[in-house]
């Protein structure tokens, strides 16, 4: 997993609630058997004017000028500002892979859907929950200032705005530790292999039908 420590980057506002994973990466791209290459199809239905299919030369497709990530001031976006229930819908981790491949490493929103939130941490994408009023304020600031950037420091659990204002955020300690160090969850769990075996041995006595 790609480690995350600190990032300063352009912020883009995606001003709609319930952004679902079907919108983030449409189903036709889930047919890929790889983890990479989803970036050009991030928000495909909103981003392009034509119908997207796997295997197209995406650089030749007509862009939707209305879509936020297509606007010149939001080129090279690394931080996305969202609304409530971000990432709802399917469990497709392809949604997170698409953000990573596009170059977005942080999403800030008042709330996230559980599975997307969890998938993000497993891939080095940092989802940050801030209260609604703070998020509203950030939307106003981003829209008012072209080139608006935020600095996100995971070590310090702090976001710094261009005016120097600091916004603290909360993140689960285990997830923070893994993200800071880019650690593989499976490797950490396998350190407890003996405990898993002991559980199985005990469970086999009390619920043997689960093992037959």
């Amino acid at each position: 997993m790609q480690a995350f420590t600190q990032l300063s980057g352009i912020v883009a506002p995606l001003d709609r609630p319930n952004v679902d994973t079907d919108a983030i990466i449409p189903k036709q791209y889930l047919k890929s058997i790889k983890r990479t290459g989803f970036g050009p199809n991030l928000f495909d239905d909103w981003r392009y004017l034509d119908a997207g299919e796997p295997g197209q030369d995406h650089s030749q497709r007509a862009l939707n000028p209305e879509f936020v990530l297509n606007q010149s001031r939001y080129q090279d976006t690394q931080i996305l500002l969202g609304r409530d229930n971000f990432g709802c819908g399917s469990s497709r981790e392809h949604a997170v892979w698409a953000f990573m491949d596009y170059g977005i490493r942080v999403i800030i929103a008042p709330s996230f859907a559980d599975i997307f939130f969890n998938n993000s941490f497993n891939n080095g994408l940092l989802p940050i929950v801030l209260d609604e009023a703070t998020v509203d304020g950030l939307f106003d600031e981003v829209e008012a200032q072209p080139g608006y950037q935020l600095t996100v420091d995971l070590e310090a659990k702090c976001i710094t705005t261009p005016s120097g204002r600091e916004i603290a955020f909360d993140v689960d300690e285990y997830r923070r530790y893994r993200l800071l160090n880019g650690l593989d969850d499976i490797g950490l769990t396998l350190q407890h292999a003996d405990a898993i075996k002991a559980y199985e041995a005990q469970r086999q006595k009390t619920a043997p039908w689960l093992f037959s």
């Binding site: 983890r35 469990s91 981790e93 599975i115 891939n123 969850d185 499976i186 898993i196 199985e200």
Partner: peptide, 20 residues
């Protein structure tokens, strides 16, 4: 419950998940 692909791999390799 539903899980992402990283967790699919985690369950395949460890038969467990780290959960809150």
């Amino acid at each position: 419950f539903g899980i992402g692909t990283s967790q699919v791999e985690h369950v395949m390799a460890t038969q467990t998940l780290v959960m809150q």
